[in-house]
Each structure stands twice: as structure tokens, then as C-alpha cells.
Amino acid sequence: MGELRIAVQSLKMSVQARMQYRVDTLVASIAVFVRESANIIVIYLALLKFDAINGWNVNEMLFLFSILFLTYAVVVSLFADLRDFSRMIREGRFDRLLVRPRGLLLQLILNNADVIASVGHGTLGILLFLLSAGRVGIEWNPVTILYYLCAIIGGVLMQGGIFIICSALSFYFVETGSIRSIFYWDMRRFAGYPISIYNKLIQTLLMYVVPFAFVNYFPAQFFLRKPDMAGYNEAYIYIAPLVGVFVYLLAYLFWRVSVRRYYSTGN
């Protein structure tokens, strides 16, 4: 409970720190929101030309996107330091954490929240959710609500896990920026669309290497049951939230091993 109090306190302090520059934060958040919205609007306009992509109509696509944005909003409020880990090491801000009496990973997760990105992506996510959820025929009951929440948590853990793995790679390699951009950012771009539109290779990557498919595609199928689901094992829908937990645990173990190596070799 001590840790929880610290977690809440830390988050509060991140927000307070940003709020010292209220206008600046607001403008930057709006900028993020506009930038991301522009992407969505382009896709939306393109989609209007088609009736559907592999059976997914525009609203269903927006629902798929909304999960991506909502999870990312939570991810950056927790994993901001791990997202920007190479920069943190380069600027020498990592060393000071080493002698503080608290778990390193916990410090990295708690210390910094990217409030701007969180607000920008979160607002867009909520907006997309409100626009699409009512029009895709989801029946909200305790079971679907519970599944939705678990899927979001799983999605956050999956992406957090990827950031942790990429950060841990910094202990082995000097430059990890390109790894991160391939394994996170490029995969995330693919995940904006139903994975059934891709060739086998990309599908495999999205399901078994960087399992973004379990962040939004399979959870969305729980609600939508599109015909393209026939190509995949039905069970994937139900294990989707667990995949996040699994990736996170794997990332945690990899981090432990890597950071121990870092301790014993020194910087």
C-alpha cells in the first residue's frame, strides 16, 4: 500500500509539474490531438470510397483505432521514460536512479508521465470510441464491459512490455532507436487495420512477434464477430488480454537479466 501511495503521489506530481505551464501543456496536447486526428481523417475519407475493407465498415475501423489510442494514452502516462529510454541514458538522467532505494523499473514507470501525449491520444481515443461504439452494435452488459476493460489493460501491458524490452536492449547495444521504431512504431501502424488484409508474414509478426493483433484486432472481434475471424483460432479472442500479461512478464524477466548485466559491467 506504501507503493500505491507513492504511485498516486508520483502521477499527481507529473501532472502538477506539467500544470506549472498550463497554457503550454494545453496547446501541445491540442497539437498532438490535431496531428493524430488528421491521420484518422485521411483514413476516414479514403474509407468512404469503399464500402468496407475485408468486411469491416468505417465505424468498425474507427472502433479498432479507438482501442489503439486509448491504450496508448495509458501507456505514455506510465512508460514514458521507457519509451524515451535511449535519450534518458544519453542525457545521463538514468544514473541518478541507480542509488535511489527503489526498484529501477518501478522508478522508471512511476517517475514520468507524458501528460501531453496522454491527453492528446486519450481525447482522440475517447472521441473515436463515442463515435463508433454506438454504431457497431455492441451490447454493453457486465460481461462485455469486463472484457473490454481487461482488453485495455492487456493492451497497455503488451505495449509497455515492448518498451521495456527495447529499453533493456540499450544495455547491450548503443543504438536501439531503429529497433524500437521497427518493433513498436511500424507494427503499431499495421495494427490500425484488420490484420486479415495483410500477407502471411506481417500477420505472423503481428500475432507472434509483436502481438499487436491481441491489443485491438482480436478484442474488437469479441464484439464484432466479422467473417474474417474464420481464418483464426477462436480462442485468440479470449486469451487476448492474457497475451499482454504474458509479454509483460517476459519483458520483466528480460529486463532483470539485462540490468544485472549492466550492474556487473558498469557503464
Binding site: 507513492i6 506530481m13 509539474a17 541518478r96
Partner: peptide, 21 residues
């Protein structure tokens, strides 16, 4: 190797310190 958090008020860093220690 400063221990204070750059982005936080000094008082908040102190609060962190008290919690951690």
C-alpha cells in the same frame, strides 16, 4: 549526479525522498 527531480518542485522531491527512505 543530482538527486532532486528536475521537473518537480524541490518540496515534491523532498516528499519522494521521505517516502523512499
Amino acid at each position: 549526479r543530482p538527486q532532486l527531480w528536475e521537473e518537480l518542485k524541490v518540496r515534491a522531491s523532498f516528499a519522494h525522498c521521505v517516502e523512499m527512505y
